[in-house]
Amino acid sequence: MAETGLTYTVYDADHMTQAEIYGAVLTRLGGERPDIVALTADLAKSTKIGKFGEKYPERFFNVGIAEQNLFGVGAGLALAGFTPFISTFAVFTSLRAAEQVRTDICYQKLNCKIIATHSGVSFGQAGTTHHCTEDISVMRSFAGMTVIVPADGIETAKAVAACCDWEGPVYIRIGRGFEPRCYENDQYDFQIGKSIQMADGSDLTVIACGPSVQHAVEAAKVLKAEAGLSVRVLNMHTIKPIDKDAIISAVHDTRRIITAEDHSTIGGLGTSVAEVIAETGKSCLLRKLGIPDQFAIVGYPDDLYNHYKIDADGIIEAANAIMGTELEADEDWEDEF
């Protein structure tokens, strides 16, 4: 297990961005694992993969501004037995180099770990070319690709460590800056594919990933205090393979589900949850919060999260709306779950 000594504390999560924690964790892993190599396309500083390069220059490759070549070279290193960590912005990973990720890496089931930063609208001021609200949708459609969206810095450390021992290609999407910290401490069990219940509840369930997790936790507290609602919050940090059992339990126990993500409402977490709900055959109210079918406006990330209603305010509004919708009684509700 590569997790030895990888304890990241609340202090770290409060003082380092997700990317900074990623760079530090990868550098530490590099000391334990000579098979790790790191690659980027001129974004060593922005993605913090350059930290690894400072310590292990012989195992670090900056290919220049050439993302297609980046993922191809990574595939070649993986074919020779290395474990490449490859980092650039989410938009260049999932769109410009999508075919190289699919064909060179996923098709061969190569052990490449892709850590993409500046996802969603976290690079809000940079504008549409640098937003990436499509990557979860793209990446989860690639056969064999595991897709992880850590909620905060602590979870980023755990995800990066865990992916080392997870066979095959992994896509981890993180933001640009400081994401609100979700966890009081690092003493929780992170397993790829297993969601984390941040709060239990029986009236409705909010399923969130990335920065929306902390907003969902906040919203649940407010809804409890102000409306007496019992809200379950699931941190669905792994989009694929998705934790079906947790979603099915949420359908059974609450019948009302809200999803929240810094991503398009098409193809991401909300769609993944909807697919599971649909297969239960049960009637369950679902509201998908995220970026609608449009290119996001420009602004500070927090303002954009508010604008697109994926922060606590937006989740509270959606919760009140979904609670106001009547559900027909279902005599067979307990059957076939």
Binding site: Q68, N69, G72, A75, G76, L77, L79, A80, Q100
Partner: peptide, 11 residues
């Protein structure tokens, strides 16, 4: 060619 470069670097 990109993949070949990766293989050569690995060697």
């Amino acid at each position: 060619l990109s993949v070949g470069i990766g293989m050569a670097l690995a060697g």
